[in-house]
Design a protein around this nucleic acid. Structure first.
Lengths: 117, 117
DNA sequence: ATATCATACAATCAAATGGTTGTATTAGAG
DNA sequence: CTCTAATACAACCATTTGATTGTATGATAT
């Protein structure tokens, strides 16, 4: 199994890409089916170039891929990257849970003398 | 059960807040234990005011809360917000899975005649 | 062959972001 | 009471972001 490591920059790009409603919509739509850039552009109230840039941001974040199809570029959502984002959030949850565990250990102490920090 | 709805803006703020390594570190540290703003500021190679701003961004995103403790402000990570971020990502996964399901239905068709869209 | 559609990309611009320093306020320590 | 530590907040600045328009290129259709 390949454990792909994420640099801080990668994680920044990933969450940054998700921090825009248009981009989230693009991801949703392209998870359902491949959609060309121009089809996407028709859906939003902004220029073609603007949509193109949003797709580029998603592509750099790994959230979509582009595949040439004739004169079009079909955009495809990448569910793996979503899962990787989830995994990153899981780690925060783990940290939280480990805090709880440590508190439980304290509460379970027979001798309630506080440990010196 | 209170179903709190998220506006696009809320979601933007949430992911934007996570798109910075310093802020992610603050969240991790404050999930483990309450930490004052000045304690945080000591850890990073930037001014107190800069750290203060990062904490403010996290607070607006709901990822941390601040509680006055004497002359300090203790920062506390909010695990609920992390879970809400996870829930948002879950929805993307669901969309992906529903696509698979639809493909399965197509493959399971006895009569392979394509449905008219 | 030509016109057109889909895309790429550069230049430009306003607004947001991430940092700084400086000043003010407030709470605790001496 | 006075000094200091912790915070808040404003002003400022450089860089990035999100959008625009304009120009160029490649693939399709006529």
């Amino acid at each position: 199994m390949v454990v792909l490591e994420f640099s801080d920059q990668d994680v920044n790009r990933l969450f940054r890409a998700l921090a825009d409603a248009t981009r989230r919509d693009v991801v949703r739509r392209t998870l359902v089916a491949d959609v060309s850039v121009s089809q996407l552009a028709d859906s939003y109230d902004m220029s073609f170039a603007a949509v193109q840039k949003h797709v580029a941001v998603l592509e750099e974040a790994g959230l979509v891929t582009k595949e040439p199809r004739g004169r079009e570029r079909m955009v495809r959502g990448n569910p793996d990257r979503i899962r990787e984002a989830q995994r990153l959030l899981d780690r925060f949850e783990e940290i939280w849970r480990s805090r709880i565990d440590r508190l439980d250990v304290l509460l379970a102490e027979d001798d309630p003398a506080p440990p010196d920090t």
